[in-house]
Amino acid sequence: MAKKNQSVAVHSSFLAHRNYLFLKLSLLICFISIVGYMWADFEPVRNGGTWYGYTLGTIGALLILWLTMLGMRKRWITQGHWSLKGWTSAHIYLGLALLIVATLHTGFQFGWNLHTLSYGLMIGVIASGLFGIYFYATVPRHMSNNRGEMGQADMLDEVENLDRLLRETAQPLNDKYIELVRDSTNKTVLGGNIFKRLSGRDKKCPTQAALKFFREELRTVDNASHGAILDLISVLERKNSLLQHIRKHIRFRALLEFWLYFHIPLTFALLAALTAHIVSVFYYS
């Protein structure tokens, strides 16, 4: 029986890890911070300089340091009973709790200064993280469904197959047509820059252009080439549909990745600003 329960526990997502343990912990931290903020005595004004402010600031700074350790944990494969899923879960919920802890630490005093810059960077990190949570929670299912029973490599192999088939089918046609098919086999681009990948489309896709061309050509073409062009269209359709799947796949992969291009650099910027913030506070006080 214990075994079964364990396997239920093992098979839960990072959000539901250990029955939402870290969500509960974060809510508790937020609750205590808010209650403390209400009840504690602050003179002359509520800000980071009071004993309560320092406490929240210390907790926040330690949290930030610990949260950045996820990158290390992920790559540092040591022995022991740690679970990266647990770390991810904690990273998410404690990271969100930081929103409350750090905001209370500011005492709602904002200005054009280093301190607020640190705060802003932190909000940036958390905001990009929110995108990450959303994508991690939703994209894999779409990605798996889009891919069906094929793997990434299978899909690329299939493109190669279809290209071979295209060349063979186009053989009996005239040079003008062959040129278009050659564009499809040689000039079709998958991926590209981040915007292209995120769009999941390629408006200038030569395969799509060829398909469109041949469909129209069908109306005017002589009987001799009619059959061959029909064949060609059916292969082009298959390739086009496969390309759409691949571009979608690339888009999903990009979605899972692109938020990190904000999250990670902002984190380093935050660490720098945070260091400056702490040093300046202690230096000038």
Binding site: K4, S7, V8, V10, H11, F14, G80, H81, S83, L84
Partner: peptide, 28 residues
Amino acid sequence: GIKGGASCVRACPTGAAIRVSPEAYLGL
């Protein structure tokens, strides 16, 4: 011999990798 068990499962950030016996999985 590695404390903590299967590294692939421990290192999965989202809980996608699971190690199970077939009875457990099908039963579940």
